[in-house]
Protein backbone atom coordinates (compact mmCIF):
# COMPACT_ATOMS: atom_id res chain seq x y z
CA UNK A 1 0.00 0.00 0.00
CA UNK A 2 2.73 2.34 1.10
CA UNK A 3 4.79 1.36 -1.90
CA UNK A 4 1.97 2.12 -4.30
CA UNK A 5 1.58 5.44 -2.64
CA UNK A 6 5.25 6.42 -3.09
CA UNK A 7 5.03 5.13 -6.67
CA UNK A 8 2.22 7.53 -7.42
CA UNK A 9 4.16 10.33 -5.78
CA UNK A 10 7.15 9.64 -8.03
CA UNK A 11 4.80 9.63 -10.97
CA UNK A 12 3.32 12.94 -9.93
CA UNK A 13 6.78 14.47 -9.49
CA UNK A 14 7.79 13.21 -12.92
CA UNK A 15 4.60 14.58 -14.44
CA UNK A 16 5.17 18.00 -12.90
CA UNK A 17 8.82 18.08 -13.97
CA UNK A 18 8.09 17.05 -17.53
CA UNK A 19 5.08 19.33 -17.69
CA UNK A 20 7.15 22.28 -16.50
CA UNK A 21 9.91 21.54 -19.00
CA UNK A 22 7.44 21.31 -21.84
CA UNK A 23 5.69 24.49 -20.73
CA UNK A 24 9.00 26.38 -20.60
CA UNK A 25 9.92 25.25 -24.14
CA UNK A 26 6.55 26.23 -25.52
CA UNK A 27 6.61 29.54 -23.64
CA UNK A 28 10.09 30.30 -25.02
CA UNK A 29 8.96 29.76 -28.60
CA UNK A 30 5.82 31.82 -28.04
CA UNK A 31 7.84 34.58 -26.37
CA UNK A 32 10.28 34.73 -29.30
CA UNK A 33 7.36 34.96 -31.68
CA UNK A 34 5.61 37.62 -29.57
CA UNK A 35 8.76 39.75 -29.29
CA UNK A 36 9.43 39.50 -33.02
CA UNK A 37 5.88 40.57 -33.78
CA UNK A 38 6.08 43.38 -31.22
CA UNK A 39 9.36 44.74 -32.59
CA UNK A 40 8.29 44.45 -36.21
CA UNK A 41 4.93 46.13 -35.55
CA UNK A 42 6.16 49.50 -36.87
CA UNK A 43 7.08 47.70 -40.10
CA UNK A 44 3.49 46.69 -40.63
CA UNK A 45 2.12 50.15 -40.43
CA UNK A 46 1.10 51.32 -43.90
CA UNK A 47 4.27 53.36 -44.36
CA UNK A 48 6.55 50.68 -42.91
CA UNK A 49 5.06 47.92 -45.04
CA UNK A 50 5.45 49.98 -48.17
CA UNK A 51 9.12 50.44 -47.35
CA UNK A 52 10.08 46.99 -46.14
CA UNK A 53 7.88 44.87 -48.39
CA UNK A 54 9.35 46.24 -51.59
CA UNK A 55 11.85 45.02 -54.16
CA UNK A 56 14.68 47.51 -53.62
CA UNK A 57 17.33 47.52 -50.89
CA UNK A 58 19.26 50.76 -51.31
CA UNK A 59 19.59 52.08 -47.76
CA UNK A 60 21.60 55.12 -48.85
CA UNK A 61 18.69 56.23 -51.00
CA UNK A 62 15.97 55.37 -48.53
CA UNK A 63 14.77 52.05 -50.00
CA UNK A 64 14.61 49.24 -47.45
CA UNK A 65 12.86 46.41 -49.30
CA UNK A 66 13.59 42.87 -48.13
CA UNK A 67 11.60 40.97 -50.77
CA UNK A 68 14.75 40.16 -52.80
CA UNK A 69 16.13 38.52 -49.64
CA UNK A 70 12.92 36.50 -49.14
CA UNK A 71 13.17 35.18 -52.70
CA UNK A 72 16.92 34.70 -52.27
CA UNK A 73 16.41 32.60 -49.13
CA UNK A 74 13.83 30.40 -50.81
CA UNK A 75 15.94 30.04 -53.97
CA UNK A 76 19.09 29.10 -52.05
CA UNK A 77 17.46 26.55 -49.75
CA UNK A 78 15.43 25.05 -52.60
CA UNK A 79 18.49 24.66 -54.83
CA UNK A 80 20.48 23.21 -51.91
CA UNK A 81 17.70 20.69 -51.24
CA UNK A 82 17.41 19.78 -54.95
CA UNK A 83 21.07 18.76 -54.70
CA UNK A 84 21.08 17.31 -51.18
CA UNK A 85 17.83 15.35 -50.94
CA UNK A 86 18.27 12.95 -53.89
CA UNK A 87 21.88 12.49 -52.81
CA UNK A 88 20.74 11.63 -49.28
CA UNK A 89 18.17 9.10 -50.52
CA UNK A 90 20.81 7.49 -52.75
CA UNK A 91 23.30 7.31 -49.87
CA UNK A 92 20.63 5.56 -47.79
CA UNK A 93 19.80 3.20 -50.65
CA UNK A 94 23.50 2.42 -50.93
CA UNK A 95 23.71 1.66 -47.22
CA UNK A 96 20.53 -0.42 -47.25
CA UNK A 97 21.70 -3.13 -49.60
CA UNK A 98 22.11 -1.50 -53.02
CA UNK A 99 25.82 -1.01 -52.43
CA UNK A 100 28.29 -3.63 -51.20
CA UNK A 101 27.50 -4.66 -47.63
CA UNK A 102 31.02 -4.14 -46.25
CA UNK A 103 30.94 -0.49 -47.36
CA UNK A 104 27.59 0.31 -45.76
CA UNK A 105 28.89 0.80 -42.24
CA UNK A 106 31.93 2.94 -43.16
CA UNK A 107 29.77 5.16 -45.37
CA UNK A 108 27.24 5.74 -42.60
CA UNK A 109 30.06 6.36 -40.11
CA UNK A 110 31.51 9.08 -42.37
CA UNK A 111 28.07 10.66 -42.83
CA UNK A 112 27.69 10.60 -39.05
CA UNK A 113 30.98 12.42 -38.61
CA UNK A 114 29.92 15.03 -41.15
CA UNK A 115 26.94 16.09 -39.03
CA UNK A 116 29.38 17.19 -36.32
CA UNK A 117 31.37 19.61 -38.49
CA UNK A 118 30.46 23.21 -37.67
CA UNK A 119 29.05 25.27 -40.53
CA UNK A 120 31.86 27.84 -40.30
CA UNK A 121 34.38 25.12 -41.25
CA UNK A 122 32.47 24.26 -44.43
CA UNK A 123 32.08 27.97 -45.19
CA UNK A 124 35.76 28.71 -44.61
CA UNK A 125 36.98 25.89 -46.84
CA UNK A 126 34.40 26.75 -49.50
CA UNK A 127 35.20 30.46 -49.60
CA UNK A 128 38.82 29.68 -50.49
CA UNK A 129 37.98 27.12 -53.17
CA UNK A 130 34.58 27.64 -54.78
CA UNK A 131 34.58 31.31 -55.93
CA UNK A 132 37.94 30.98 -57.73
CA UNK A 133 36.71 27.75 -59.32
CA UNK A 134 33.44 29.33 -60.49
CA UNK A 135 35.35 32.33 -61.88
CA UNK A 136 37.63 30.03 -63.83
CA UNK A 137 34.91 27.69 -65.11
CA UNK A 138 32.31 30.23 -66.16
CA UNK A 139 34.13 33.56 -66.41
CA UNK A 140 31.03 35.29 -65.06
CA UNK A 141 31.10 37.66 -62.14
CA UNK A 142 32.97 37.36 -58.87
CA UNK A 143 32.31 33.69 -58.19
CA UNK A 144 30.38 34.64 -55.08
CA UNK A 145 27.04 33.30 -56.22
CA UNK A 146 23.90 31.30 -55.57
CA UNK A 147 25.41 28.12 -57.06
CA UNK A 148 28.50 27.98 -54.84
CA UNK A 149 26.49 28.64 -51.69
CA UNK A 150 23.91 26.00 -52.69
CA UNK A 151 26.57 23.34 -53.26
CA UNK A 152 28.21 24.07 -49.91
CA UNK A 153 24.87 24.14 -48.15
CA UNK A 154 23.95 20.81 -49.78
CA UNK A 155 27.09 19.28 -48.28
CA UNK A 156 26.05 20.68 -44.89
CA UNK A 157 22.43 19.45 -44.85
CA UNK A 158 22.84 16.12 -46.68
CA UNK A 159 24.15 14.20 -43.62
CA UNK A 160 21.27 15.49 -41.49
CA UNK A 161 18.76 14.23 -44.05
CA UNK A 162 20.55 10.87 -44.25
CA UNK A 163 20.39 10.45 -40.48
CA UNK A 164 16.65 11.15 -40.34
CA UNK A 165 15.95 8.72 -43.20
CA UNK A 166 18.25 6.16 -41.59
CA UNK A 167 16.45 6.29 -38.25
CA UNK A 168 13.18 5.92 -40.15
CA UNK A 169 14.31 2.93 -42.20
CA UNK A 170 16.23 1.06 -39.53
CA UNK A 171 13.25 -0.62 -37.88
CA UNK A 172 11.36 -0.89 -41.14
CA UNK A 173 14.09 -2.56 -43.20
CA UNK A 174 14.62 -5.49 -40.84
CA UNK A 175 11.00 -6.50 -41.42
CA UNK A 176 10.59 -5.64 -45.12
CA UNK A 177 14.07 -6.85 -46.04
CA UNK A 178 13.38 -10.48 -45.14
CA UNK A 179 10.01 -10.50 -46.86
CA UNK A 180 11.35 -8.93 -50.03
CA UNK A 181 14.33 -11.30 -50.12
CA UNK A 182 11.91 -14.23 -49.72
CA UNK A 183 9.91 -12.89 -52.66
CA UNK A 184 13.09 -12.85 -54.73
CA UNK A 185 13.32 -9.04 -54.97
CA UNK A 186 16.70 -7.40 -55.52
CA UNK A 187 18.02 -4.94 -52.89
CA UNK A 188 17.28 -2.07 -55.29
CA UNK A 189 13.70 -3.27 -55.72
CA UNK A 190 13.43 -3.54 -51.93
CA UNK A 191 14.64 0.03 -51.37
CA UNK A 192 12.87 1.84 -54.19
CA UNK A 193 9.81 -0.41 -54.49
CA UNK A 194 9.04 -0.90 -50.80
CA UNK A 195 11.10 1.21 -48.37
CA UNK A 196 10.72 4.54 -50.17
CA UNK A 197 6.94 4.37 -50.71
CA UNK A 198 6.28 2.97 -47.22
CA UNK A 199 8.33 5.68 -45.53
CA UNK A 200 6.80 8.64 -47.38
CA UNK A 201 6.09 10.50 -44.16
CA UNK A 202 9.58 9.85 -42.85
CA UNK A 203 11.10 11.13 -46.10
CA UNK A 204 8.92 14.19 -45.91
CA UNK A 205 10.01 15.03 -42.38
CA UNK A 206 13.64 14.45 -43.41
CA UNK A 207 13.08 16.91 -46.24
CA UNK A 208 11.53 19.48 -43.93
CA UNK A 209 14.33 19.22 -41.40
CA UNK A 210 16.90 19.62 -44.16
CA UNK A 211 15.04 22.55 -45.70
CA UNK A 212 14.75 24.27 -42.32
CA UNK A 213 18.45 23.83 -41.71
CA UNK A 214 19.28 25.21 -45.17
CA UNK A 215 16.94 28.17 -44.69
CA UNK A 216 18.34 28.98 -41.26
CA UNK A 217 22.04 28.70 -42.02
CA UNK A 218 23.81 32.05 -41.91
CA UNK A 219 27.56 31.61 -42.24
CA UNK A 220 27.64 29.79 -45.59
CA UNK A 221 25.25 32.26 -47.20
CA UNK A 222 27.08 35.25 -45.70
CA UNK A 223 30.48 34.10 -46.92
CA UNK A 224 29.57 32.66 -50.33
CA UNK A 225 26.60 34.42 -51.94
CA UNK A 226 28.24 37.84 -52.37
CA UNK A 227 25.27 39.39 -50.53
CA UNK A 228 24.18 41.71 -53.33
CA UNK A 229 20.48 42.39 -52.66
CA UNK A 230 19.36 41.17 -56.08
CA UNK A 231 16.65 38.84 -57.28
CA UNK A 232 18.19 35.52 -58.27
CA UNK A 233 18.32 35.50 -62.07
CA UNK A 234 21.10 32.99 -62.66
CA UNK A 235 22.86 30.37 -60.50
CA UNK A 236 26.04 32.39 -61.12
CA UNK A 237 24.53 35.64 -59.85
CA UNK A 238 25.00 37.09 -56.40
CA UNK A 239 22.05 37.03 -53.98
CA UNK A 240 21.40 37.97 -50.37
CA UNK A 241 19.41 35.75 -48.00
CA UNK A 242 17.39 36.76 -44.93
CA UNK A 243 19.75 35.27 -42.35
CA UNK A 244 22.81 36.98 -43.82
CA UNK A 245 20.82 40.18 -44.09
CA UNK A 246 19.99 40.03 -40.39
CA UNK A 247 23.63 39.35 -39.58
CA UNK A 248 24.87 42.32 -41.58
CA UNK A 249 22.24 44.87 -40.61
CA UNK A 250 21.75 44.03 -36.93
CA UNK A 251 24.87 45.95 -36.00
CA UNK A 252 23.69 49.12 -37.75
CA UNK A 253 21.95 52.08 -36.20
CA UNK A 254 19.30 51.64 -33.56
CA UNK A 255 15.82 52.32 -34.83
CA UNK A 256 15.05 53.42 -38.34
CA UNK A 257 13.78 51.34 -41.23
CA UNK A 258 17.00 49.36 -41.74
CA UNK A 259 16.85 48.12 -38.17
CA UNK A 260 13.14 47.33 -38.46
CA UNK A 261 13.77 45.30 -41.59
CA UNK A 262 15.81 42.91 -39.44
CA UNK A 263 12.79 42.08 -37.30
CA UNK A 264 10.60 41.70 -40.36
CA UNK A 265 13.21 39.30 -41.79
CA UNK A 266 13.20 37.26 -38.58
CA UNK A 267 9.43 37.13 -38.54
CA UNK A 268 9.28 35.98 -42.16
CA UNK A 269 11.87 33.26 -41.50
CA UNK A 270 9.91 32.03 -38.51
CA UNK A 271 6.63 32.10 -40.43
CA UNK A 272 8.07 30.14 -43.37
CA UNK A 273 9.58 27.37 -41.22
CA UNK A 274 6.50 27.33 -38.97
CA UNK A 275 4.12 27.01 -41.92
CA UNK A 276 6.13 24.21 -43.51
CA UNK A 277 6.32 22.26 -40.29
CA UNK A 278 2.56 22.62 -39.66
CA UNK A 279 1.77 21.51 -43.21
CA UNK A 280 3.99 18.45 -42.85
CA UNK A 281 2.43 17.49 -39.51
CA UNK A 282 -0.98 17.72 -41.10
CA UNK A 283 0.12 15.60 -44.06
CA UNK A 284 1.63 13.05 -41.70
CA UNK A 285 -1.59 12.85 -39.66
CA UNK A 286 -3.67 12.29 -42.79
CA UNK A 287 -1.29 9.55 -43.82
CA UNK A 288 -1.64 7.78 -40.48
Amino acid sequence: MKRAHSQSRTDALLRVTLGTTAAISVAAVLAIFAFLVYFSLPVFSAEGARQVLSWDWRPLEGSFGILPMVVGSLALSTLAMVLAFPAAVLVCAFAYGVGPKWLARPVMAVINLMTGIPTIVYAFVAVLTIPPLLRELFDAGTGFALLGAAVTLAVLVMPTIVLVIDSNWRGLATRTGVVCAALGMSPAQHVFGVLVPVSRVGLLSAFVLGFGRALGDTMIALMLTGNAPLLPTSPLGSIRVLTAHIGMVLATAVGGPAHQSVFASGLILLLVTGTISVLVRRAARQEA
Binding site: R58, M223, G226, P229, L230, R240
Partner: peptide, 24 residues
Protein backbone atom coordinates in the same frame (compact mmCIF):
# COMPACT_ATOMS: atom_id res chain seq x y z
CA UNK B 1 27.69 60.23 -51.77
CA UNK B 2 27.16 58.75 -55.23
CA UNK B 3 25.49 55.41 -55.99
CA UNK B 4 27.10 52.10 -55.18
CA UNK B 5 25.91 49.64 -57.83
CA UNK B 6 23.38 47.18 -56.40
CA UNK B 7 25.21 44.27 -58.09
CA UNK B 8 28.25 44.95 -55.87
CA UNK B 9 29.19 42.02 -53.64
CA UNK B 10 28.92 42.80 -49.93
CA UNK B 11 31.49 41.57 -47.40
CA UNK B 12 31.16 41.96 -43.65
CA UNK B 13 34.62 43.03 -42.46
CA UNK B 14 37.89 44.68 -43.49
CA UNK B 15 39.48 41.21 -43.34
CA UNK B 16 36.88 39.65 -45.65
CA UNK B 17 37.41 42.55 -48.06
CA UNK B 18 41.14 41.89 -48.19
CA UNK B 19 40.55 38.16 -48.78
CA UNK B 20 38.05 38.79 -51.57
CA UNK B 21 40.17 41.38 -53.42
CA UNK B 22 43.47 39.55 -52.96
CA UNK B 23 42.02 36.49 -54.72
CA UNK B 24 40.32 38.17 -57.65
Amino acid sequence: EGDIVVEANVVASNGAMKTAVSED
